[in-house]
């Protein structure tokens, strides 16, 4: 039977002096994902391995990790796709909790700071709507792509600016801001542009495109950020 050789980053800050890599041989079966192979390790070989996952089908965005050097969703990555020797590490740019589990506190704080909800000037109408908010297909297409984000943090891990500048909001937060800015139902344009027009804000994106390369949902944050930049230039 064909086996997969997993090299897994192991580090428990509460007991270990320094990180180490552990190797495991996992029997391959057709259709096996990287998450399947890690779960095999956890169930059969080493139950102390810490991983985070939930839906196993690329929807919840919990199992982001660095697989052979690139951020990927473990449940969305076929073993066959990445080879028979797989190196699995935690996501970069996120503080480490243990083994492959990272802390998303900063990530979600930045997301929230973008006010990712519809801002309306008619609060009363919003609370007690008297009619539907209608949109044309063309209006929907301006932002629908960016609303597929599952907040898995892969773009944030791939962004070279976040590595250098941890205060940078990151691709996910900026793209989510554009998602609402481009929505015809939103009234928060000025407020949103003020949030990102900072020295360590929107303008520090250099279109390295790594966010769009690794996004598992086709959100293309790099496109959203460039369009946001155009809007910010218009003022």
């Amino acid at each position: 039977m064909r086996t997969v050789r997993l090299t897994v980053y192991r580090f428990d800050p509460t007991s270990d002096e320094r990180p180490r890599y552990a190797s495991y041989e996992v029997p391959y079966r057709s259709g096996m994902t990287v998450l399947d192979s890690l779960l095999y390790v956890k169930e059969k070989l080493d139950h102390t391995l810490a991983i985070r996952y939930s839906c196993r089908m690329g929807i919840c965005g919990s199992c982001g990790m660095t697989v052979n050097g690139l951020p990927r969703l473990a449940c969305y990555t076929q073993v066959k796709e990445v080879g028979w020797r797989i190196k699995v590490e935690p996501l970069k740019n996120h503080p480490l909790v243990r083994d492959l589990v990272t802390d998303f506190t900063d990530f979600f704080r930045k997301y929230k700071s973008m006010r990712p909800w519809l801002i309306r000037t008619d609060a009363e109408e919003q609370e007690n709507p008297t009619k539907q908010y209608t949109q044309s297909d063309a209006e929907l297409e301006r932002y629908i792509q960016f609303s597929y984000c599952i907040s898995c943090g892969l773009c944030y891990a791939a962004c070279p600016v976040v590595t250098a500048l941890p205060e940078f909001p990151g691709p996910q937060a900026l793209a989510s801001l554009y998602r609402f800015l481009a929505d015809t139902r939103d009234h928060g344009r000025r407020e949103r542009l003020r949030i990102v027009d900072e020295a360590v804000g929107l303008w520090r994106c250099h279109f390295a495109g790594s966010c769009s390369q690794v996004c598992p949902k086709g959100v293309d944050p790099a496109l959203a950020i460039q369009l946001l930049r155009r809007e910010a230039m218009r003022g």
């Binding site: 027009d197 900072e198 020295a199 929107l202 303008w203 910010a232 230039m233 003022g235």
Partner: peptide, 9 residues
Amino acid sequence: MRERNVMLV
């Protein structure tokens, strides 16, 4: 100077 204007320059 606002960052937007700096980048415009």
